[in-house]
């Protein structure tokens, strides 16, 4: 007598699709959360050396005198100073009236264009020099210092700019694919009189 074939052996395995809906639900929540946490702003870094405080180091007799070019930032604008031995007068760059589209009235703004132009003159006279000191009144905010460093960092296509808008949009001068440096080694400097 023939037996009934085994149902288990002859059964066709019916594999059901995985239910992806819960995973999709998690992904739909996770992705907007991550996009919200994701920063679309490009962050870069500005390198600065430690502040100089206290009396200067004694110089060796054969040591080449450094230019000690210093930008002083105060409420009235910029003052460009250098080592007294070089016998060049300080350059005072006052605030300049700027018409801003976002502000109805013209307002006073730091003249970064002229600062850059003056720094280019110094660079032409002392082409080996790459260090610049940055001193400021203690209440001067960081965003002004950051723009000041930016003006001193690299050479632009033109060596002088009158207009802040032209200066702001100017392209960097490249040599062999490398930006041409201006005074790119920035050192913070604290005025000892102010520190008291």
């Amino acid at each position: 007598m023939a037996r009934k074939p085994s149902e288990r052996r002859h059964a066709t395995e019916n594999l059901e699709d995985i239910n992806l809906t819960p995973i999709m639900s998690i992904l739909v929540i996770l992705i907007p959360m991550l996009i919200f946490a994701f920063s679309f702003i490009e962050i870069a870094l500005q390198q600065v050396a430690a502040p100089k405080m206290g009396p200067p180091k004694p110089k060796q007799a054969d040591e080449k005198k450094p230019l000690q070019l210093t930008i002083v930032v105060n409420d009235a604008g910029f003052v460009l100073k250098q080592q007294a031995d070089f016998e060049e007068p300080d350059v005072v760059i006052p605030l300049k009236e700027q018409a801003d589209v976002a502000v109805t009235q013209p307002h006073l703004e730091y003249d970064y264009a002229r600062l850059y132009s003056e720094l280019m003159k110094k660079k032409k006279a002392y082409s080996e020099e790459r260090t610049i000191n940055l001193a400021a009144d203690f209440h001067i905010p960081w965003h002004i210092l950051a723009r000041t460093i930016d003006a001193a960092r690299v050479q632009l296509v033109e060596s002088a700019y009158d207009d802040l808008v032209q200066y702001a949009q100017a392209k960097v001068k490249f040599t062999d694919g490398v930006p041409e440096p201006l005074f790119d080694t920035v050192v913070f400097m604290v005025d000892p009189d102010q520190a008291k």
Binding site: A44, Q46, A49, P51, F138, L145
Partner: peptide, 26 residues
Amino acid sequence: PFRLIAEIVHSAGMAELHDFRFAIMK
């Protein structure tokens, strides 16, 4: 302000950190 930045840089310098890199928005 510059004063607070100078204080932070000075304190970091005293802790043997000598390369300061300020984050900016490019």
